[in-house]
Design a protein around this nucleic acid. Sequence first.
DNA 1: CCGGATCCTAGTCGATACTG
DNA 2: CAGTATCGACTAGGATCCGG
Lengths: 143, 143
Amino acid sequence: MTGLRRDNLPTAQMRLVDLFENWSAGEFDPSNCPVRGILDRLGDKWTTLVVIVLAQRPHRFSAVQRAIPDISKRMLAQTLRDLERDGMISRQVYPTKPPSVEYRLTELGQSLLDPLVNLITWAEQRRPNIEGARAAYDASDRA
Amino acid sequence: MTGLRRDNLPTAQMRLVDLFENWSAGEFDPSNCPVRGILDRLGDKWTTLVVIVLAQRPHRFSAVQRAIPDISKRMLAQTLRDLERDGMISRQVYPTKPPSVEYRLTELGQSLLDPLVNLITWAEQRRPNIEGARAAYDASDRA
DNA sequence: CCGGATCCTAGTCGATACTG
DNA sequence: CAGTATCGACTAGGATCCGG
């Protein structure tokens, strides 16, 4: 009942079992975990949105800001810098007057779109379940 | 050069274009964005790890803590509660003495494993690229 | 127009101590 | 064993001003 038989498991689960065992073998040093860094970045509130916006087409700084109305300049600049540092987007400066800077996804950035779309699709499909579960939980426990 | 032709695009990108246009049509209210809530949760530093641990098999509270050595009781309890609230895990209390509580993924939680594995796989494959880009960026800009 | 630097607030997380 | 309560440190993030 507590064990896990490897046969007849969904492939995703099997993959995770393998991954986890590999990590555990290496003492599972969390700072060395490749997933943490990636997911932390994706979860940092703006990165995903910026990637989605740039997936449409290259954008200038203020164009990104118009596309995401509730982002501050500070966070936009920081998010763009981090994404550039990770090689996900490229920054092209046109020394016009006034200057303009165009951001676009690199090939690496494009390659993120596939898993990202999977996640978004999952979120869309399962949103009713999640919201239902939340409502039920809140209703029962509030007593 | 700035436009985006719908033909001959990767499917992932096309999906995103569609999604984004739908969102924009509704004024893109960020608080109504289903993805934000999901990704925020996944990015909150522990959720993903806990899901991965529970994907191996059901765990008791302290077993999860042993599997993730650097999580505090406080954060573990909170993460488990949030996941339960979202219907991703179920909480089974055995009124033994001393009490024991077992957590396991629900069907909804299991369904997250597929997109999650995609993301992890992507992160593993692309980690050299990301780390290389980081090193290059830091080397050039430090001047 | 683009974005860096500064200041400050508000939420987040960890350590510790305590309860059922 | 399985949590909760309280506190303090840390930090993400918004507002604003400034420079290129």
